[in-house]
């Protein structure tokens, strides 16, 4: 399956909905979207990965790149993911310590708001 991207605004947070496979072929599209959102002043991002079927290190790189960009504006990039197959690659690479990973979009928003 190819990659489908969507996004919507929830308060001061921009929710990015990713569906399909994030790999070396499709990751540039996600990267472009994240860059575009940051360039438009969206510094609080939540990437909903519940419908992601595949994620490799290229996709991780794009997410980390997005994180670096929002952090440059004191922003945040949190993830929503409960799929073990996807979480595994975050664990292998140690990125569970870098990203806030939540069960739901609302939880991601609430935890940031409470900080």
């Amino acid at each position: 399956m190819d990659l489908k991207l969507d996004h919507y605004t929830e308060g001061d947070t921009e929710i990015v909905v990713v569906e399909g496979e994030i790999d070396v072929y499709t990751a540039p599209r996600l990267r472009e979207l994240l860059i575009d959102l940051v360039n438009k002043g969206n510094f609080y991002l939540v990437v909903n990965m519940e419908k992601v079927e595949f994620l490799d290190s290229t996709g991780l790189g794009v997410l980390v790149g997005g994180l670096k960009r929002v952090r440059a504006h004191d922003g945040t990039l949190d993830l929503v993911c409960t799929q073990e197959r996807i979480l595994k690659i975050f664990r292998i690479t140690g990125l569970t310590k870098v990203f806030g990973i939540h069960d739901t979009v609302q939880e991601a928003i609430d935890k940031r708001s409470s900080k």
Binding site: P28, R31, G61, V62
Partner: peptide
């Protein structure tokens, strides 16, 4: 594509 090294 990103700052990742192929080593990752």
């Amino acid at each position: 594509i990103s700052g990742f090294s192929p080593g990752l």
